[in-house]
């Protein structure tokens, strides 16, 4: 019997790769930031599956809350769209 943890780890690693690519290739910075936050959520699930509750507690507020908020402040003060 294949362990469920391994399957879920593989699924969330795939999701993380998918959204990391989207975050890097997107020209609109706000959208890129949202993709990056989704990718961070996938990593939070990976941390949870790897039996690291301490890391989940610190990673969820920082990577899904504080960091997108800080970058949003930055984007609001600068330009929203990346020039080609």
């Amino acid at each position: 019997m294949v362990d469920l943890t391994m399957v879920l780890l593989a699924v969330f690693a795939g999701i993380a790769l998918f959204f990391a690519y989207l975050a890097i290739s997107e020209r609109n910075l706000v959208r890129a930031l949202i993709y990056s936050a989704v990718q961070s959520s996938a990593f939070a699930f990976i941390f949870y599956l790897l039996r690291a509750p301490d890391i989940v507690l610190v990673y969820v507020p920082i990577s899904v809350g504080i960091y997108p908020a800080a970058i949003l402040f930055l984007i609001r003060k600068t330009k929203e769209v990346e020039e080609p």
């Binding site: 690693a13 990391a20 890097i24 910075l29 990056s36 984007i75 020039e83």
Partner: peptide, 27 residues
């Protein structure tokens, strides 16, 4: 998948000229 994520984010750090995009890739 993890090596691929590292590759994608390194590409973002090195090749993207926008500093905000570089910060996103760095994190």
């Amino acid at each position: 998948a993890i090596i691929g994520t590292i590759g994608v984010s390194l590409y973002g750090i090195v090749a993207k000229p926008n500093l905000i995009k570089k910060i996103i890739a760095l994190t």
